[in-house]
Amino acid sequence: MKLLRLMIQARRVDERLIKICRQGRLRGSAFAGIGQEAISAAVAVASQPDDLFAPCIRNLPLHLGRGETPLGVFRQALGRAKSPTGGRDGNVHYGRLDHGVYTMISHLGSMISVVAGGVMAKRRQGKDTVGVAFVGDGATSTGDFHEALNFAAVFDIPLLVIIENNHYAYSTPTSHQYRCHRLADRAVGYGIDGYSADGNNPAEIYITVRDILNDIRANPRPALLEADTMRMRGHGEHDDFKYVPETLLQVYRRRDPIRMGIRGMQAAKLITDDQIEAMELEIADEIDRSARQALSEEEPLADTLTQGVYRDA
């Protein structure tokens, strides 16, 4: 139920962001994770308070699951003074360390080593922390992906690197990104375990993630998980994604993770139509209030431009 709620909440936030973007009120573009919600929702639900995360572009359910609010997300996208980054950064570059969530940079693969170092520190402090870093299929081609996985393997850092294989890195299909059969097979080269799972099946991805996290928490070492999914929109809303064949989108539309989650729960009689409707209404109400509030708020004062570059000694 928690997993389903996170997926629906993230979907509705993304839809609202797209609307605000189309109205021309967003700064820059909106970067939706529609269709990929199950993976990071599963991670959020399977995680423990001391765990650390390096989310990437399409991991809104993780942020929400770790304590960020829709209001914070709208403020961030709008560059408001009260946003998690105070308007210094935008769109998907946010996170709060008190939620265990690192703020990403745009250089793909570069956050994996950061969360690895964070987990090393927490473990030295006696915590049973594990880390989860998210990357897409494109980031697997970077040197940083390799450096960080090898580094984590050498030091037996309990870090799960999840490749959300959504078939396109911006416009580049996986056929132009790598030649291996499965990206999960790369784990062998690092001496770690590699897993594959259906990233659009909430039950399957949740059980997979939960079991891996339990395993590496008890026996510290990294692991690699390739989750198959599909980016159902452009890289950002500025992108018409004409390069994605409609037939491929159709396949994944039928396998929408929210639809699959609801069907599974209905089949197991874990949820009723009334409960779904109540959940949707509650989420819609919060999102509407949050969006309106964020839209009404101020941007940071221009005079604060040069403040906070350094921490005072």
Binding site: S113, V114, G117, M120, Q125, E147, A148
Partner: peptide, 14 residues
Amino acid sequence: SAMLGAAIGMATQG
């Protein structure tokens, strides 16, 4: 790169 990335991770965790 991993050396410096890990340093950022450690530095932000005490």
